[in-house]
């Protein structure tokens, strides 16, 4: 899922301090699971904003709404009838949701209420870590199901590098060496022969380096 983290409330207040009516818009998908942008967080942020503005002596109308998804036209259409009641929107969906809302409602200022971080997994309660960078050419088949692009700080395809010490990466003693994980996994699978194979240079044009990406599925288009 897409993992996001809270934005300091002071930063959000600074974005919207000049508006008289604000819609706090949540999303029921990834940001709900990582507990930054769901219905409950919409309630918390709206409550905090109300208290802030009341204390400032202003009468600001703060609306609350949580959509099933903010990255689909169908769900974003649900607010078309009442979005005009608000001067601005604070979207606490991921960056995709914020942008899609802004694209759909051209004349409405939309501000981000979270910091979108990465595609990751929920390792434990309250702990999320990166697992995929969306490089566009998945190589998990050759690396025992552990991604050298997202788990190795250098994203090298034939590792580990000289910075790997006691299974940890040189950038932090808390970060496991991605290639150590790959080797351990290949050993467990009895596939160490695969480790001896040299991986060819990766085509990075399918990654972000190739510019904004798009998927067009002719079989699905209407």
């Amino acid at each position: 899922m897409i993992v996001a983290d809270k934005k300091p409330i002071e930063e959000i207040i600074d974005y919207v301090k000049d508006y008289q009516s604000i819609l706090v818009l949540g999303c029921n998908e990834c940001v709900t699971v990582c507990e930054v942008g769901g219905k409950k967080e919409v309630g918390l942020l709206a409550s905090a904003l109300r208290m802030h503005f009341l204390q400032q002596g202003g009468e600001v109308n703060i609306g609350e709404r949580t959509l099933e998804r903010q990255c689909d036209h169908e769900y974003l259409e649900e607010i078309r009838d009442n979005i005009d009641h608000y001067e601005a929107v604070v979207s606490i969906a991921c960056g995709v949701g914020v942008q899609f809302t802004a694209e759909k409602y051209q004349t409405k200022p939309v501000y981000p209420g979270v910091n979108t971080l990465f595609m990751g997994a929920n390792e434990a309660r309250g702990v999320w870590s990166e697992r995929c960078q969306g490089c566009g050419q998945c190589i998990l088949a050759i690396s025992g199901g552990i991604c050298p692009v997202s788990r190795c700080a250098k994203r090298i395809l034939n590792g580990p590098c000289g910075g790997s010490t006691a299974g940890k990466c040189e950038i932090s003693k808390d970060i496991p060496c991605g290639w150590q994980l790959i080797i351990d996994r290949l050993k467990a699978l009895g596939r160490m022969d695969d480790y001896e194979k040299i991986n060819p240079i990766k085509n990075w044009s399918t990654e972000r380096a190739g510019g904004p990406r798009k998927v067009i599925r002719e079989d699905l288009k209407l």
């Binding site: 300091p8 905090a48 904003l49 208290m51 802030h52 204390q55």
Partner: peptide, 8 residues
């Protein structure tokens, strides 16, 4: 933390 941030 939130209450501190909003001045309560």
């Amino acid at each position: 933390k939130i209450l501190d941030a909003v001045g309560i």
